[in-house]
Simulated assay, not measured.
Amino acid sequence: MIGTIAGFLTTLAFVPQVIQVLRTKNTKAISLGMYLMSVTGIFLWMAHGYAIGDMALFIANVITFCLALVILIAKLKYK
């Protein structure tokens, strides 16, 4: 239960940033290095969840990965 709530909150935490980046196309204050590491780490957590058969871990990280990837792509596109 705690893990599900944690996954839900950490996943949704990316939504406001995605909305702001897509609306403003302003990524100046976003660290490229941080998002590269974050997207990589989220991908690895996603792979780990899949490997151990933890669907809650896997699904939360699939969604988080997609949201963080949108921000990373915007950072690279709107430099």
Rank of each mutant, 00 (worst) to 15 (best):
L69W: 11
F65A: 05
V18L: 12
I19H: 15
K75Y: 04
W45D: 07
A47L: 10
A6Q: 12
Q17T: 14
V62G: 00
L32Q: 02
G3D: 15
G33M: 02
A13E: 11
K75L: 04
K75T: 06
L72I: 05
V15G: 10
K79V: 03
L69E: 04
A51Q: 10
V70E: 00
N26W: 02
M46A: 06
T24V: 07
I52Q: 09
G53H: 00
Y50S: 08
G3K: 08
S31C: 09
V70C: 14
A47R: 02
Y35K: 05
M46Q: 03
N61Q: 06
Y50R: 10
A13T: 14
A60Y: 11
A29M: 05
A56I: 11
L9A: 09
N26R: 06
L32R: 05
F65E: 08
L72Y: 00
V21F: 05
M46K: 06
L9R: 13
A6E: 08
I59N: 09
V39P: 05
A6K: 13
A6Y: 10
S38F: 15
C66F: 06
Y78T: 00
A60D: 10
Q20F: 10
Y50Q: 12
L9E: 13
G49I: 04
A51H: 09
L67E: 02
T27W: 08
L67S: 01
V70H: 04
N61W: 06
L72T: 02
A68V: 09
M46N: 03
N61P: 07
A13V: 11
K25T: 08
I52F: 08
Y35A: 11
A74H: 06
F58T: 03
K28C: 09
V15F: 11
T27R: 09
I63H: 00
C66L: 13
N26P: 03
W45G: 02
G3C: 09
A60C: 09
K28H: 13
D54W: 03
I5A: 14
G53Q: 02
G53E: 07
L44D: 11
G53V: 02
L76H: 08
M34Q: 13
N61S: 06
A56T: 13
V15C: 12
I73R: 00
F8E: 08
A74G: 11
T11A: 09
L76D: 01
M55H: 06
V70P: 10
D54A: 07
S38D: 06
M34G: 09
I59F: 10
I2P: 03
F65C: 07
A74K: 04
I42F: 04
V18F: 13
I30L: 15
A47I: 02
L76M: 15
A47K: 03
T64N: 08
F58V: 02
K28R: 15
Y50W: 05
L44C: 10
V39M: 03
K77E: 00
H48C: 02
F43W: 07
F65P: 10
Y78D: 00
G49Y: 08
A60V: 07
T4H: 11
K28L: 07
I63Y: 01
A51L: 13
A68F: 11
V18W: 13
